[in-house]
């Protein structure tokens, strides 16, 4: 590990079998759900912008399992997997993408705006960097009310260029707030590669300049992500101040369904696919004698079944009546 906490080379021990299987199962659940989403987009069941997380599943999976149920989570528009692992039922996620009233945001938000207040999932935010100041404020509220919890804030590396990143980072450090900044560095912001947008491409150095402790980790390795996030979360819990973790990852698909991917070589994508988080982890488990091919197929079949049920649920769900158009602009019942 170097001074900004480089854990990219760290090799960790294999977790207990049930937990290892849980990690794999969750990555599969995200993958199968999103593959179905892409298909449903083609069938025009899902509309608007759809940003797939395919290739990056190890990040949300490893990180979410390092959080407590009482923690806050703030995410971006590429948040289907985060919502799912936070415990938002796949039915409600799928219904949201269909625009149905049974969706987790009543069909008002769609793919980019999944919310679940009861699970402290404060949304998919589609303004790049928009979530960081919000996370700082959630943590501030906890601090002021004497509540001990971590606020985890996911964002892409593109957000690092926004003022909101720098202002949020500084506030969190200055006020020593318990924010866990989780940067999913997939090397591209739409078509703009990191080294075409940042003079300093070592993101940990930026966070460190605000005196925020950092860790950098291989985001294709679910165990490494989990271990790093556990360490970071523990430090936040114990010491109260913020922490910055960078996951080095890659999206295998286009930025959104509108992106013809003119800006990168197929070869680069293929190279990263070799390090796909699902097959590399299952290969490791198999090599360690912790997973059989049948075991893998069982987990996969369970994921497929969950997806099929979610799609059926979303299909059958009702549309919100148009008469309700003006609801939820302000809070009924007035001031508290």
């Amino acid at each position: 590990m170097n001074e900004t906490g480089d854990m990219t080379e760290a090799v960790t021990g294999m977790p207990e079998r049930p937990f290892a299987h849980r990690l794999l199962a969750d990555m599969l659940r995200i993958r199968r759900m999103e593959e179905k989403c892409a298909e449903l987009y083609g069938a025009q069941k899902i509309r608007g912008f759809l940003h797939l997380y395919i290739g990056e599943e190890a990040c949300a999976t490893g990180a979410m399992h390092a959080l407590d149920a009482g923690d806050n989570v703030v995410a971006t528009y590429r948040e289907h997997g985060h919502a799912l692992l936070r415990g938002v039922p796949m039915d409600a996620i799928m219904a949201e993408m269909f625009g149905k009233a049974a969706g987790c945001s009543r069909g008002r938000g769609g793919s980019m705006h999944l919310f679940d207040a009861a699970r402290r999932f404060y949304g998919g935010n589609a303004i790049v960097g928009g979530g960081l100041p919000l996370a700082v404020g959630l943590a501030l509220a906890d601090r002021m009310q004497g509540i001990r919890r971590v606020t985890a804030c996911f964002f892409g590396e593109g957000a690092v260029a926004e003022g909101a990143f720098h202002e949020g980072m500084n506030l969190a450090a200055l006020w020593r707030l318990p924010v866990l900044f989780l940067c999913e560095n997939n090397l591209y912001a739409m078509g703009t590669a990191l080294d075409r947008s940042e003079s300093q491409t070592e993101l940990c150095v930026k966070a460190a300049s605000y005196k925020v402790p950092t860790l950098k980790v291989d985001g294709m390795d679910v165990r490494a992500v989990h271990e790093a996030t556990c360490r970071a979360a523990q430090q936040v819990r114990e010491e109260g101040g913020p922490f910055f973790v960078e996951f080095r990852t890659f999206r295998f698909r286009a930025h959104s369904m509108f992106d013809p991917e003119l800006y990168r070589d197929k070869a680069e994508v293929e190279e990263w696919k070799k390090r796909g988080p699902i097959h590399s982890f299952s290969a490791q488990l198999k090599a360690a004698g912790e997973l059989s091919e049948d075991g893998f197929l069982d987990l996969d079949a369970a994921a497929e079944a969950e997806v099929a049920a979610a799609v059926a649920f979303a299909e059958a769900a009702a549309w919100e009546p148009v008469e309700d158009l003006l609801r939820d602009v302000t809070t009924p019942g007035g001031r508290s």
Partner: peptide, 16 residues
């Protein structure tokens, strides 16, 4: 436009 943030669902967006 109706006094509501633009909703995602098609029928609601159209109505807004």
């Amino acid at each position: 436009s109706e006094e509501v943030p633009i909703p995602y669902a098609k029928h609601m967006e159209d109505a807004a």
